Amino acid sequence: MVVQNFVVDLNKPLVFQVGHLGEAYDEWVHEPIISKEGPRFFQSGVLELFTQTAWWVIPIIWVPVASWFISGSVKAGLPCSHVAPLVFLGIFLWTLAEYLSHRFLFHVKTKSYWGNTLHYLMHGCHHKHPMDSLRLVFPPAAAVILAVPIWNIVKLASTPSTAPAVFGGILLGYVMYDCTHYYLHHGQPKTEVPRSLKKYHLNHHYRLQSYGFGITSPLWDKVFGTVPPPLKADAKSR
């Protein structure tokens, strides 16, 4: 049920409050609170624990899993010269999935109670509290739930010997994505490429949320026409 003129109490667990915002949710969630201390999501300590993940957990868990899948193609008889391109294909497919999910799923407009609630859990919390370091990467339990259907799709679209390498590449692409995403918020890049990527992503958070959906690369933004238009000052300097 949507409550008219509802005001979120930031001192109380947020997840079951945000649904009451109704149509006002989209504006509220895109007004960021810049603080390294994240909000409390649930009253339950157990549920709260499952919403928090340190960035280094992602490579520790998923790199071995990806390696195990890739080795499956080798054990199936594929030479390394064939496995490597399949892994890169998986990484490439991940970049497209990253873009499409960020644009069409993470930024879907919601206004119902459960729509707002699920969106906040999925991605809205990151836009509201972009510096919350424990909610920048995807919790492993939730990632497993998404990984299973992706693996089944890859199996349907590939042969038994090639599917493990492609899926392993997808997992590696995911690890690159989550670690890059964390770095763009909390790292201090010294060279031009990561510095430009950080500026590109923060522009998505603080200026134009409807552009710049690529995290690891602006490739698909260029393909689909969602590269953010430059600031007037930038345009004049060119």
Rank of each mutant, 00 (worst) to 15 (best):
M1F: 04
M1T: 08
V2E: 07
V3Q: 11
F6C: 05
V7G: 09
V7D: 04
D9M: 06
D9E: 10
L10I: 14
N11F: 00
K12M: 09
F16R: 14
A24E: 09
D26H: 13
E27W: 14
E27M: 12
W28A: 02
V29K: 06
V29N: 04
P32N: 09
S35K: 10
K36C: 00
Q43L: 10
G45M: 14
V46I: 15
Q52W: 09
T53M: 05
W55Y: 14
W55L: 00
W56A: 07
P59W: 06
I60Y: 13
I61K: 00
W68E: 00
W68H: 08
W68Q: 01
W68G: 02
I70L: 05
S73H: 07
S73Q: 07
G77W: 02
L78I: 05
L78D: 02
V83A: 00
V87G: 00
L89M: 13
F92H: 07
F92W: 13
L96F: 15
E98G: 05
L100N: 09
R103D: 08
H107L: 14
V108L: 15
K111F: 13
Y113V: 03
W114E: 01
W114T: 05
L118W: 11
H119L: 13
H119Q: 14
Y120D: 02
M122V: 15
C125M: 14
H126D: 12
H127A: 11
K128L: 10
H129G: 02
P130D: 11
S133R: 11
L134R: 09
R135W: 08
F138I: 11
A143K: 14
I145S: 02
A147K: 04
V148W: 15
P149L: 12
I150M: 13
W151P: 00
N152M: 13
K155P: 01
S158D: 04
T159K: 07
S161Y: 08
P164C: 03
P164V: 03
A165G: 02
V166L: 04
F167I: 02
G168N: 00
G168V: 00
G169E: 11
I170G: 04
I170T: 03
L171W: 01
G173K: 00
Y174G: 01
V175Q: 05
M176S: 13
Y177A: 12
D178V: 08
D178I: 06
H181V: 15
Y183S: 11
H185P: 02
H186S: 06
P189H: 05
S196A: 14
L202E: 12
L202P: 03
N203M: 10
H204T: 07
H205A: 06
G212T: 05
P218S: 10
W220V: 02
G225A: 12
P230S: 04
P230H: 03
K236D: 15
